[in-house]
Simulated scan of single mutants.
Amino acid sequence: MASELSGLLRTVRLNAGCSQLELALRLDVSQRHVNFIERDRARPSRALLLAWLREMGGGTSLANAALLNAGYAPLRPSPRLPASPTRCDEVALRTIALHYPNPGHVFNADWHIVQANPAGRWLCDVVMPGVWAGERLDMLAALADPRGWLSCARSPKRIAAALLGQLRAEQWVRPGLRPRVDALEAVLVARYGCLVPPAQRDAMATSFDVTLDTRLGALSFCAVQTVCGLPHDASGARLRAELWYPTDMRTASLMRQQAERADQTA
């Protein structure tokens, strides 16, 4: 089985539509050396790693993932998840409050929801009643659960493939995710068959469109994940806000009505 490093480098090359020969010419190395690196038979130097990712359009996060997996120092510090929220994490928490009456939640690098605004919790209860029972929600478990939100999503196979592609990209930076992602993939493949991310979707994309068929009718959203902070400071250890934006008037109106009812009964 390929290592995280060889898998990352091969995936980045394939996503760029570049052959081994073309990459070898651009890096001024032999195609045999490129092939050996992708097959875990050779270890690239730090300079070659950075050149590889630069030629293939990889950003800082991918560069650091590759460097750490190869045993090299990252381009910038890679802090661990802090015990208490940083100022940027506090901004993420405040963002979902300001996003109300639309759904929003905050999750950590291990894909556990740590906080949701009232609309986010209400939507979860509508689309997957009984799944979120405690203070936190394991998002990967919710994807795998047959009662989870994929059960009422239109085109669930497309969404599952897109999210799985993102999770595979994230595990390069956070290898501890891999066993959980492997387990999730096994469940989703058993349910939907072979999952191939849409050709036009970037594995680094952090937004998706979804329509949910619920007891209240169809609800349509665009879900966008955001990390607060300057781009070069963004860390995979930070909390992320996922904001759900209604994409039709009916969904927007229903969210406003739900918020008004909640305010009246509060």
Rank of each mutant, 00 (worst) to 15 (best):
T211C: 06
T211I: 11
D213G: 08
T214Y: 01
T214W: 02
T214E: 04
R215Y: 09
R215E: 06
R215S: 11
R215F: 09
L219F: 02
L219Q: 03
S220L: 02
S220H: 08
S220R: 05
S220T: 04
C222E: 07
C222G: 05
V224W: 05
V224R: 03
V224I: 10
Q225G: 15
T226H: 09
T226D: 11
T226K: 10
V227D: 00
V227C: 05
V227I: 07
V227A: 02
V227G: 02
C228A: 11
C228Q: 08
C228G: 06
G229R: 08
L230A: 07
L230I: 01
L230T: 07
P231K: 12
P231V: 01
H232V: 13
H232M: 14
D233I: 08
D233F: 15
A234M: 13
S235R: 10
S235W: 01
S235M: 10
S235V: 02
G236T: 13
G236D: 12
G236K: 10
R238I: 04
R238L: 03
L239E: 04
R240P: 05
R240I: 06
R240H: 10
A241T: 06
A241D: 02
L243F: 05
W244D: 03
W244K: 00
W244A: 00
W244G: 02
Y245P: 05
Y245K: 11
P246Y: 15
P246M: 07
P246D: 02
T247L: 03
D248W: 05
D248H: 06
M249I: 10
M249G: 13
M249S: 14
M249R: 15
R250V: 14
R250T: 13
T251P: 09
T251I: 00
A252Q: 08
A252I: 00
